[in-house]
Design a protein around this nucleic acid. Structure first.
Length: 489
RNA sequence: CGGGGUAUAGCGAAGUCCGGUUAUCGUGCCUGCUUUGGGAGCAGGAGGCCCCAGGUUCGAAUCCUGGUACCCCGACCA
């Protein structure tokens, strides 16, 4: 049933598709560019959601929900915003169907044309700021800290499961503040929440940085990003946090009276991560045997396999171990399928990325042992049943740590510092190019030119970058610090 | 939107150039028996609008015309 995946070094894109398909994460749908997230894939998303939601709550945010439809006129109120999204919007023009008078099937009822067409949200800034106008009148109403979990639609030309789809699931935070400084603080705070989530839960190291003007969110003053490096040496923008300044407040007339009875526009932020994170998770840890999941996000952390097949004795012991593991909060399942052989189950559970496998056979019952196999290193060892729960609990932590460390080492190995275009190109010509730290003269023209020449873009200007005077690799113009280039998803 | 390609069983393919019995193979699926500490073996079985519409022909998966969908490469993007 579970067929092997294409090796990574043979065809990385195909490997990715094989993982998504064979690990039962998602599939293409009847609707072009839209994906069906299958239960196992959705289980990972649910764990991400739960954790992020807790982190949002801890930082003072509340959830709310705004409509999927946005009046067309709203979108055009912020000039940069409409320019950024206009080319990829789905538009609702009618509200009724009718039977086709000269044939079978149904047609759009031409008499049911909407007076004002509705846009399917590509993001919700406009409808939210149109609402915030009514919610905010006094400095006492601020800050307004709202998040929503939703789907959005961006009509993409070329799609890839999880990484880029026409419809995707995400969360979008939208906050309003009394001062510029507060908005900036919020923007950075949420970038750090995302970075913490990526590193501690996804075990995916990220660079924290700010986008250049041309890579900025449409309508933002500044866009902060977390950038991860995938196994094929391409960068993935994994989350963004925007300081929107007063752009949307002005466009939607969102004003408040301050303590001095003076009327002011509010300061705004927005921030989001999406199901794209699942793509990042796959491309950070998985191998040629299949998916590799960090224990903190794995829907199932431990699987117990009876060897060679279930029987009363093995079932009883397995249930005893399961109960103990569960009482420690470990998510465990028992693979008691009688039709499949152990070897098949091993391969199948590896494909699904389950972090720890426990093999329990008659030999083990006799010896008071159990076979413990870890997914990340594929090591297996016989362990005494006595104290197995403690052993598994600490092994899960160790795996979580190891995945992060391995990914971090990989990123360090594939981060380069160069000073000339020749060196720059040489790095990009490698099989696994990675991040390139180089000087840039700060102009959009140079950035564009480099992108055209090399297909590498500026991923970010790292938050922690130290000032270092240098010369732009393309123009030789003055530069005050290195920026990070990479080919990107 | 430009350039190229593909469409046959759940999935992957052969057959199409050169029209001709009942459309073939692998895999998966169902049943039974034997197996079982790393993806089992044998036997039997089910499963098809050969993308859609029209045309040529005694006869079309195959030839012709028109459509649709999907994939790859560019431009655009979380």
């Amino acid at each position: 049933m579970a067929s092997a995946v294409t090796p990574r070094n043979e065809d990385y894109s195909q490997w990715y598709l094989d993982i998504v398909k064979n690990a039962n994460l998602a599939q293409n749908s009847a609707v072009r560019g839209c994906m069906i997230i299958k239960p196992y894939g959705y289980g990972i998303w649910e764990r991400m959601q739960r954790q992020l939601d807790d982190m949002f709550k801890e930082t003072g945010h509340q959830n709310a929900y705004f409509p999927i439809f946005i009046p067309k006129s709203f979108l055009s109120k912020e000039a940069a915003h409409v320019e950024g999204f206009a080319k990829e919007c789905a538009v609702v023009t009618h509200y009724r169907l009718m039977n086709d008078p000269n044939g079978e099937g149904v047609i759009v009822d031409p008499s049911a044309k909407l007076e004002e067409e509705l846009i399917v949200r590509p993001t919700s800034e406009t409808i939210i700021w149109n609402t915030y106008r009514d919610w905010v009148t006094s400095y006492r109403d601020l800050p307004l800290l709202i998040n929503q979990w939703a789907n959005v639609v961006r009509w993409e030309m070329r799609t890839r499961l999880f990484l880029r789809t026409a419809e995707f699931l995400w969360q979008e935070g939208h906050t309003a503040h009394a001062t510029e400084a507060e908005a900036q603080e919020e923007t950075l705070k949420m970038q750090e929440v995302y970075a913490t989530f990526a590193e501690e839960f996804m075990a995916m190291p990220v660079l924290r940085g700010v986008k250049t003007e041309s890579e900025r969110f449409a309508g933002a003053v500044n866009t902060y990003t977390i950038e991860a490096l995938m196994q094929d040496g391409k960068a993935l923008q994994a989350g963004t946090s925007h300081n929107l300044g007063q752009n949307f407040a002005k466009a939607f007339e969102v004003k408040f009276q301050d303590e001095n009875n003076k009327e002011q526009y509010v300061w705004a932020t927005s921030w989001g991560v999406s199901t794209r994170l699942i793509g990042g998770l796959i491309m950070t840890h998985s191998d040629d045997e299949g998916l590799v999941l960090p224990p903190k996000l794995a829907p199932i952390q431990v699987v117990i396999i009876p060897i060679p097949k279930p029987n009363e004795e093995l079932d009883a012991k397995a249930h005893e171990i399961m109960a103990e593991l569960k009482s420690r909060g470990i998510r465990v399942s028992y693979d008691n399928d009688k039709k499949k052989r152990p070897g098949f189950k091993f391969a199948e559970n590896e494909l699904k990325g389950i972090p720890v496998r426990l093999g329990l056979g008659k030999r083990d019952l006799a010896n008071g042992t159990i076979e413990v196999a870890r997914r990340d290193t594929k090591e297996k060892a016989s362990q005494p049943l006595e104290g197995i729960v403690d052993h598994v609990a600490s092994l899960l932590e160790e795996i979580q740590q190891n995945l992060f460390q391995t990914a971090l080492d990989f990123r360090e190995e594939h981060s380069h510092t160069v000073d000339t275009m020749e060196e720059f190109q040489a790095i990009l010509d490698q099989d696994i190019p990675g991040f390139i730290y180089a000087h840039w003269d700060g102009t959009a023209e140079t950035e564009q030119k480099i992108k055209e020449l090399t297909k590498a873009s500026i991923r970010c200007i790292p938050n922690d970058s130290v000032g270092e005077v240098g010369k732009c690799i393309l123009t030789g113009g003055a530069s005050e610090r290195r920026v990070v280039f990479a080919r990107a998803y």
